[in-house]
């Protein structure tokens, strides 16, 4: 099992609750805006602490409220791709890509640049990139951090149709060629149907 997740967390007046078990490949969390999909991703990443529950990814227990296990964000090694890319504005693309990288990583900078087609962008500043370019750099940054799994929060939402297609193909290749478990948040039914092997409604 790549993901075994059962968490609940109260945020103000809403209770975010989610439980599922999923196999390898891409698992989509699907549901309307405001349902708490991003909160679930944050809990898996270690940025938000569940009130109670258990999070197991690829056989490793990241959080368990009964045993008191809570692996730190840094040690979870989630490759988190945010909706808005969130490239560091004061670093060039190269430094963004290398921010979380280590020598024993999954792939080198050159490999990632080739895989994502961003080799010509390395010396640019994030503010000069198009939405699709920024999102591919964000995916590259997550991949170079030597992740054990990927979390993607509506990575296509801020893009126009042509860019969506370009990033969608990248995600399909990630899914098929790297073999990392991917947890993918979206509210777009067509997108989820095309990408996901397993759909969790929330």
């Amino acid at each position: 099992m790549s993901f075994e997740i059962s968490v609940s967390r109260r945020l103000g007046d809403t209770l975010v609750q989610c439980a599922f078990v999923a196999d390898a490949g891409l698992t989509a969390l699907f549901g309307p805006s405001g349902a708490g999909k991003t909160s679930v991703l944050n809990m898996v990443a270690g940025l938000l602490k569940p009130d109670e529950g258990r999070i197991v990814v690829a056989g490793e227990v990241l959080f368990d409220s009964t045993s008191g296990t809570d692996i730190s964000v840094q040690a979870r090694r989630a490759g988190y791709v945010f909706q808005d890319g969130r490239l560091f504005p004061h670093m060039r693309v190269r430094d963004n890509l290398l921010f979380g990288s280590s020598d024993d990583g999954l792939m080198s900078l050159a490999d990632a640049a080739e895989f994502l087609g961003i080799g010509h962008l390395l010396d640019r500043w994030p503010r000069t990139l198009s939405g699709g370019e920024a999102q591919r750099v964000a995916i590259g940054r997550a991949m170079l951090s030597n992740p054990r799994f990927l979390l993607m929060d509506e990575p296509l939402a801020a893009l126009d149709r042509a860019r969506r297609e370009e990033v969608m193909r990248t995600i399909e290749r990630l899914r098929d060629e790297l073999g990392l478990p991917i947890l993918y948040v979206s509210h777009d039914r067509a997108e989820v149907k095309r990408l996901a092997g397993h759909i969790v409604e929330i």
């Binding site: 270690g46 940025l47 964000v73 979870r76 490759g79 988190y80 945010f82 921010f99 979380g100 951090s145």
Partner: peptide
């Protein structure tokens, strides 16, 4: 959110402060 992003990339609190 930039600080949270840096932490998911493995950066310690001190590195987040220094670089972000």
């Amino acid at each position: 959110r930039f600080e949270a992003t840096a932490m998911t990339l493995g950066a310690s609190r001190w590195r987040v402060f220094r670089t972000i």
